[in-house]
């Protein structure tokens, strides 16, 4: 019997289509329009072609911020993903008070607003009143995130790990809980080692959630703004000025809308490229084994 094609379901995507159009597509189109113009005010625009793109592509400060940003995001992924998996593997399973307590404790950092996280770490790291800073001072470590670039950099990194590793752990935990007990029983009968169980059962079953975790953490860390802005203000010097902070300085501080729009498009394309590469690599990483 021939199947009847019913296209009415397409109407169901209209709300999503409208939301995405108004929240993403139309603003993005406006940014593209701005990027080829000098904007003096509403209605006072002059076409400048690709001038802003040329200015952005030859901007040394932007190159530095981009390199800083890539190193930072890769460091975030290199620490948070393995750490999140380890925490998820160590978490108690089943329904018990211990499980609930662990889940609540892990969720706590995720509930704190970004600017509060920055403030917490700003105080935490201070040598005079902060627990971390004062402890370092007491044991003789010369730590000062306000005037040492490496200290500032490491503090921003550790702050992100503290804030977001829970998300990776919770996602991995959800992935682990979805594995049927029969898989573990079969592995036990075969005498599989802990590593073999992880490599051939747990890791492949976590692939879906790991894709989400890697993409979310990459995109979030690549767009980080609030926490380093509150903690270090981008300093000392420009050592913790990431792309979004530099972009904000350009758009809001200098009101250089055209150049900031060109910068935004380059920024968007870089995020799109990296996300596409990560997504493709992760979704195809298991396909070779199936063959």
């Amino acid at each position: 019997m021939d199947k009847v094609q019913d296209n009415r379901a397409w109407f169901l995507i209209i709300p999503v289509f409208l939301i995405v159009a108004f929240s993403a597509v139309i603003p993005l189109m406006t940014v593209v329009n701005y990027s080829v113009q000098e904007i003096f005010g509403p209605g006072q625009t002059f076409f400048v072609g690709t001038e802003w793109f040329e200015a952005v592509l030859t901007d040394e400060r932007l190159h530095d911020a981009l390199v800083r940003q890539i190193i930072y995001s890769l460091a975030v992924l290199a620490i948070e993903i393995p750490l999140g998996i380890l925490i998820a593997l160590g978490m108690p399973g089943g329904r018990s008070a211990k499980t609930s307590l662990t889940l609540v404790l892990l969720a706590l950092p995720l509930l704190i607003p970004f600017n509060v996280v920055g403030t917490i770490w700003q105080i935490f790291g201070r040598g005079d009143i902060g627990l971390l800073g004062a402890t370092f001072r007491a044991i003789g470590v010369d730590y000062n995130y306000t005037n040492n670039s490496l200290d500032a950099w490491l503090t921003v990194l550790v702050m992100d790990v503290w804030h977001w590793t829970s998300l990776v752990a919770l996602l991995c935990y959800a992935g682990l809980q979805s594995i049927p007990p029969a898989f573990y029983q079969a592995a036990k009968i075969d005498g599989a080692s802990k590593w073999a169980v992880f490599r051939y059962i747990q890791l492949p079953k976590m692939r879906g959630v790991l894709i989400i975790a890697v993409l979310l953490r990459f995109m979030d860390s690549f767009m980080i703004y609030t926490e380093p802005f509150v903690l270090t203000g981008g300093g000392p010097g420009n050592s913790t000025t990431f792309l979004s902070q530099y972009l904000t300085q350009m758009a809001v501080g200098q009101f250089d809308i055209g150049k900031a729009a060109a910068f935004s498009i380059v920024y968007f394309l870089i995020v799109l490229l990296f996300s596409f590469i990560f997504y493709t690599v992760i979704t195809n990483s298991g396909s070779g084994e199936k063959k």
Binding site: I26, N33, Q37
Partner: peptide, 12 residues
């Protein structure tokens, strides 16, 4: 007008 359209971007 708020979208600041130009002919090249519209064609694009």
């Amino acid at each position: 007008g708020w979208m600041a359209w130009t002919a090249p971007t519209a064609i694009f």
